[in-house]
Amino acid sequence: WEITFERNGKRITVRTTDHRLLELFEKLWRNGADERELERLAEEINR
């Protein structure tokens, strides 16, 4: 799966075969987690 999240013109794409990681990322994104931390998390998930 691949999903791109966008907020205030900032886009972060997450790619993984584990839908649970996408759900976790989406919850953090929707709850306003720090964008720098989300970028780092996305990099780890995308590996």
Rank of each mutant, 00 (worst) to 15 (best):
W1P: 08
W1M: 10
W1G: 08
W1I: 12
W1E: 07
W1H: 11
W1Y: 11
W1A: 07
E2G: 01
E2P: 01
E2I: 07
E2Q: 03
E2N: 01
E2S: 01
E2W: 04
E2C: 05
I3Q: 12
I3P: 02
I3L: 11
I3H: 12
I3M: 13
I3R: 11
T4K: 03
T4F: 06
T4A: 08
T4N: 08
T4L: 08
T4D: 07
F5H: 02
F5C: 07
F5R: 02
F5P: 00
F5A: 03
F5M: 06
E6G: 01
E6S: 03
E6H: 05
E6P: 02
E6K: 01
E6D: 05
E6Y: 06
E6Q: 05
R7S: 13
R7H: 09
R7K: 14
R7I: 15
N8K: 04
N8A: 07
N8G: 10
N8Y: 02
N8H: 08
G9Q: 03
G9K: 02
G9T: 02
G9W: 00
G9Y: 00
G9P: 00
G9M: 03
G9D: 05
G9H: 04
K10W: 06
K10M: 14
K10C: 07
K10G: 03
R11T: 13
R11F: 14
R11W: 09
R11H: 13
R11C: 08
R11L: 12
I12P: 00
I12M: 04
I12H: 04
I12K: 00
I12C: 03
T13S: 07
T13Y: 04
T13A: 04
T13K: 07
T13I: 11
T13L: 06
T13G: 02
T13W: 01
T13Q: 07
T13F: 04
T13V: 13
V14D: 00
V14N: 00
R15F: 05
R15K: 13
R15L: 04
R15A: 07
R15T: 11
T16V: 10
T16K: 01
T16C: 03
T16S: 11
T16D: 01
T16G: 11
T16W: 04
T17Y: 07
T17R: 11
T17C: 08
T17W: 04
T17K: 12
T17F: 08
T17P: 08
T17H: 12
D18F: 02
D18L: 03
D18M: 04
D18P: 01
D18A: 06
D18W: 02
H19Q: 14
H19K: 14
H19E: 11
H19L: 14
H19D: 07
H19G: 09
R20K: 15
R20F: 13
R20E: 13
R20C: 07
R20M: 13
R20V: 11
R20Q: 13
R20T: 14
L21S: 05
L21G: 01
L21N: 04
L21Y: 08
L21D: 04
L21P: 00
L21T: 04
L21E: 04
L22C: 09
L22Y: 06
L22D: 00
L22P: 00
L22Q: 04
L22F: 09
E23F: 04
E23M: 09
E23W: 05
E23T: 08
E23L: 11
E23P: 02
E23G: 05
E23D: 14
E23R: 07
L24C: 10
L24I: 12
L24N: 06
L24Y: 14
F25R: 00
F25W: 04
F25E: 00
F25I: 06
F25P: 00
E26Q: 05
E26F: 10
E26R: 04
E26S: 03
E26K: 06
E26C: 05
E26L: 13
E26M: 11
E26A: 06
E26P: 00
K27T: 14
K27A: 14
K27Y: 13
K27S: 13
K27W: 13
K27E: 15
K27L: 15
K27G: 10
K27M: 15
K27V: 12
L28M: 14
L28K: 06
L28C: 10
W29H: 09
W29D: 04
W29C: 09
W29M: 13
W29E: 06
W29Q: 07
R30M: 13
R30N: 15
R30K: 13
R30Q: 15
R30S: 13
R30I: 13
R30Y: 15
R30V: 14
N31T: 12
N31V: 05
N31I: 04
N31K: 09
N31R: 04
N31M: 08
N31E: 15
G32I: 04
G32K: 06
G32P: 02
G32S: 05
G32Y: 05
G32D: 05
G32M: 08
G32C: 06
G32H: 09
A33P: 02
A33T: 11
A33W: 10
A33L: 10
A33K: 03
A33H: 10
D34H: 08
D34A: 10
D34N: 10
E35M: 15
E35R: 03
E35Y: 15
E35S: 10
E35T: 12
R36F: 14
R36H: 15
R36A: 15
R36P: 12
R36S: 15
R36K: 14
E37S: 10
E37I: 14
E37K: 08
E37C: 13
E37V: 14
E37W: 08
E37M: 13
E37F: 14
E37L: 15
E37A: 11
L38Q: 01
L38S: 01
L38K: 01
L38E: 01
L38M: 08
E39Q: 11
E39S: 09
E39G: 06
E39D: 08
E39V: 12
R40D: 09
R40N: 12
R40I: 13
L41M: 10
L41F: 12
L41C: 06
L41Q: 03
L41K: 04
L41W: 08
L41Y: 06
L41D: 00
L41S: 01
L41R: 02
L41E: 02
A42Y: 06
A42C: 07
A42N: 03
A42F: 08
A42K: 02
A42E: 03
A42M: 11
E43F: 02
E43H: 10
E43P: 01
E43L: 09
E44I: 13
E44H: 14
E44L: 14
E44D: 13
E44M: 14
I45R: 01
I45M: 07
I45F: 04
I45D: 01
I45A: 04
N46L: 09
N46S: 12
N46P: 02
N46A: 10
N46G: 07
R47N: 14
R47L: 11
R47P: 03
R47D: 06
